[in-house]
Design a protein around this nucleic acid. Sequence first.
DNA 1: TGTACATCAGTGAACGCGCGTTCACTGATGTAC
DNA 2: TGTACATCAGTGAACGCGCGTTCACTGATGTAC
Lengths: 191, 191
Amino acid sequence: MKKSKAETALTRRRIVETAATLFRRNGIHETGIAEVMAAAGLTQGGFYRHFDSKNQLVAEACSVGTHTTLTADIDAAACPSDGRGVLQEVIGRYLSTEHRDNPSDGCMLTCLGSELARADEDVRAGAAVGFKKMVDTIAEQFRDIEPESAKARAVFVVVAMIGAVTMSRTVPDAELSELILQQTREHLADL
Amino acid sequence: MKKSKAETALTRRRIVETAATLFRRNGIHETGIAEVMAAAGLTQGGFYRHFDSKNQLVAEACSVGTHTTLTADIDAAACPSDGRGVLQEVIGRYLSTEHRDNPSDGCMLTCLGSELARADEDVRAGAAVGFKKMVDTIAEQFRDIEPESAKARAVFVVVAMIGAVTMSRTVPDAELSELILQQTREHLADL
DNA sequence: TGTACATCAGTGAACGCGCGTTCACTGATGTAC
DNA sequence: TGTACATCAGTGAACGCGCGTTCACTGATGTAC
């Protein structure tokens, strides 16, 4: 059963990406090793050939999985279909009902926010890497102000978006959920 | 060992409040029945005399525990020490390092945000009650605009605050954590 | 180039622990007479 | 008011299940000669 190094690395990456998706969908604690491995087309026994512990997987999945979506969205938004700016497009996508309703394809920070806040420093450091990338990506769009101010403003935009999507997923009242997204879109557009 | 009705009700409330504190500190999944009961000065066996399941406790703890702190803070802020308005005072307290560093005394929505987003509808409904109270409390402070607009604005304020405190707890970088709180304070003050 | 051995990714079962839940039992209080 | 019984909050042990982790084993690939 020995695999080539390239194949092993590929398998490892597949496990991390599968885990990131499942963590987003069901949370870290609710996602078991066996479930991750099965979803990756493997059996649980093989897990420890790639990782020392579940916690190591969590840390990797968080640093890899946090920014992927936003980055992909930025790329897609780089040439927005309508006349709106890139920033509007990114904010609009993040605060969309699609993002709200599809956590497993979405932003990890929103899906795991409060779980990450209580996690090991390793895991939190991984999440922070993703957070900083999000901030930088947004900050780049504030071209008319100084870099320092742009970063500060981007920090606010990112945390407001995270809070908004989290709460829009929490309230069962559909109207209120919409209001949360819409209000956040409007207030952030005013910056 | 039979207790009077009043005593039983008191015990039940103590269990709910103890649970709310532990949930805030360690999360729902990480907090066991036995731990809650021990912290309330009881043994685990008695739990099911008061509740049908852990989930029922979670739902109650969320609806009770979500707004307590903010409400208490509003009351305390009703006569702010310095010249600032009540709104500034409330926002300042929510976005303080004290609140960030003491989750067990703080807002449940921030502590459990992403866990709540994936919870049963019962639990989410309980959390939504708390969320709406927070929004109403903030909206009352926007006296110069129409109630509808005030509510809409308050929704944004609340979700931004929740996102900010959650992320300020996540990033291990102390400077960035401060920046998150400070920027959110400033941007919300501008409303 | 061909052969023999070492490596190690992956398998599938088992272990051990924690946690939600159940249960037989206790004994103080409430209730019926 | 006093007595006998029923109730039920609380105890402490046990059950059963799921999950993280371990382990003996397999067999295809890499490596040494």
